[in-house]
């Protein structure tokens, strides 16, 4: 499959350091201080769990790291670009080509079949339909959902839908997968399937994963954890690999 074309240009001389890092991120929504000087590094191929209580700022942090939300202060370095200051067009190009996203409720397009959903990021990247759907199907087989390829998302179980969404998040072989409570709506067995397949595929592809969760069993699939409390990231000894 084709690698994102912009990869070569974005890997600067600093590529030996972390792939993605945030320094001193702050973000307020009106009177609510969602993030306060939060920091984190994510190495190439590394899987990091972002943990913390509800409302602690995990999703806000993830959105800032992925260039979806602009922080009020701080820097987000991604392969030589400061996402906190990059132009919107640059951010949306990055999100399409180098990042993959997986949320609690798959957020599949209901009017498209599952395989069309998975192929969508490739189609948006300019690939032809046949090639895109072939690649989508290959990944869906891997994630054990090839049998629902022609169904609409509405005709899938929650677990199937979430694996379809995982395939969509991985189909471009993104350098970073952002997963926000990807198993929050699933039972233990289905949650485990999604996590196994997500982390295995990410490791095969060499993708980094930022995995937001409040469940320790989910975080245990990561290489290490970063704790968020009241919008701040904690430095806890022992979080290393």
């Amino acid at each position: 499959m084709t690698q994102p074309t912009s990869r070569a240009e974005t890997v600067g001389p600093g590529a030996r350091g972390p792939l993605l890092s945030a320094y001193g991120l702050s973000k307020a929504f009106g009177p609510t201080q969602a993030l306060t000087a939060a920091s984190l590094t994510l190495a190439e191929g590394e899987i990091v769990a972002l943990m913390g209580p509800s409302g602690s700022g995990k999703s806000t942090f993830l959105h800032c790291l992925a260039g979806i939300v602009r922080p009020d202060a701080g820097r987000v370095d991604y392969a030589g670009t400061d996402l906190a200051r990059a132009a919107d067009t640059r951010l949306s190009a990055l999100r399409r080509t180098e990042f993959g996203f997986l949320f609690q409720f798959g957020q599949l397009v209901p009017e498209l079949s599952c395989v069309e959903n998975v192929a969508l990021p490739l189609r948006l990247g300019g690939q032809r339909r046949r090639a895109a759907e072939r690649e989508a199907l290959r990944l869906m087989e891997h994630l054990d959902v090839a049998d629902v390829a022609r169904r609409r998302p509405g005709a899938c179980s929650g677990g199937q839908g979430q694996r379809v969404a995982a395939a969509r998040a991985l189909v471009t072989r993104p350098r970073v997968v952002f997963a926000d409570e990807p198993t929050g709506a699933l039972d233990s067995l289905n949650g485990e399937k999604v996590l196994r397949l997500l982390t295995d595929t990410a490791r095969e592809n060499g993708s980094s994963v930022l995995l937001v969760t409040h469940e320790a069993r989910v975080a245990a699939y990561a290489d290490r954890e970063v704790i968020v409390r009241d919008g701040r990231t904690l430095d806890v000894a022992g979080g290393a690999r």
Partner: peptide, 24 residues
């Protein structure tokens, strides 16, 4: 109690990662 939680969480997670790997 937060500090006890943080230290214990790190230790628990270390072991949980190992178990998760062994399980795989």
């Amino acid at each position: 109690a937060d500090e006890i939680l943080d230290v214990q969480r790190a230790e628990h997670l270390r072991q949980m990662r190992e178990l998760t790997r062994r399980k795989a």
